[in-house]
Design a protein around this nucleic acid. Structure first.
Length: 221
DNA sequence: ACCCAGGGTCATA
DNA sequence: TATGACCATGGG
């Protein structure tokens, strides 16, 4: 007979939104700080990223020009708490060089989303997820961010296998939720919140608003 | 001590 | 296209 119900994405979104409320993403003071954070948080816990950003701020280096001009070993030293510091120093410089060469935030904001996405992806060190973080949270574009939590959640809810190509999951989510920047912003933040603050404590999620449909999004053994 | 984290690139087949 | 190695700190 019918197997376990497959909740549609809007329902999952409403359920998580009802349980956790507004997430107020992205935690940053300026769009440029969002962009820096997006690079530094690659495969890294956010708390570590905050320390690295604090180091930059303390030295007045939260600035594209200052980052481009900084010595590699100095920049790597400030980024140390966020891990992969040599690679991230190079990626951050790549990004800042591109950002300065692109003119200004307003210049980039004038591009259509497809062109801006392609431009971001042309930077060595900016992949799909980082590009979409920047598009959504720094430029307010209606794109959805697919991360490892999202793949596990979709897979374990039975909505997808979870290992589909990045854009397949992104486009499916955008189609399901609509081109609503606020909703796309909140949904990604809620998936992260659900993963790290709820399922980590109770893998079975007995107290989660998703109820019996709530899967653990911890990695499988 | 082990596992994971708000990934991406590059070499290889 | 699809794996695997590599990058590295910090918290649970």
């Amino acid at each position: 007979m019918s197997r376990r119900a497959r909740p549609a994405l809007p329902g999952v979104f409403r359920t998580l939104a009802g349980q956790f409320g507004p997430q107020h993403w992205w935690p940053a003071q300026t769009p440029f700080e969002v962009m820096v954070g997006a690079v530094l948080t690659q495969n890294t816990a956010w708390g570590n990223v905050e320390q690295a950003i604090a180091n930059l701020r303390a030295r007045d280096k939260l600035d594209a020009g200052a980052i481009v001009r900084a010595r590699h070993d100095h920049l790597a030293g400030w980024l140390r708490p966020s891990g992969y510091f040599n690679i991230k120093a190079r990626r951050l410089k790549n990004f800042c060089r591109w950002y300065l060469a692109s003119g200004s935030y307003e210049t980039l904001q004038a591009l259509d989303t497809h062109a801006l996405r392609a431009a971001l992806l042309s930077v060595n060190g900016i992949g799909y997820e980082t590009a979409d973080d920047i598009l959504l949270y720094a430029f307010g574009r209606p794109v959805f961010v697919i991360d490892a939590y999202t793949r596990r959640l979709y897979g374990r809810l039975g909505l997808f296998a979870g290992d589909e190509p990045y854009d397949e999951l992104r486009l499916a989510t955008e189609a399901a939720l609509g081109r609503d920047v606020g909703a796309l912003n909140e949904f990604h933040a809620l998936i992260v919140r659900h993963a790290k603050e709820h399922c980590r404590v109770r893998p079975a999620c007995g107290g989660c608003a998703l109820r019996q449909r709530c899967p653990s999004v911890l990695p499988q053994p």
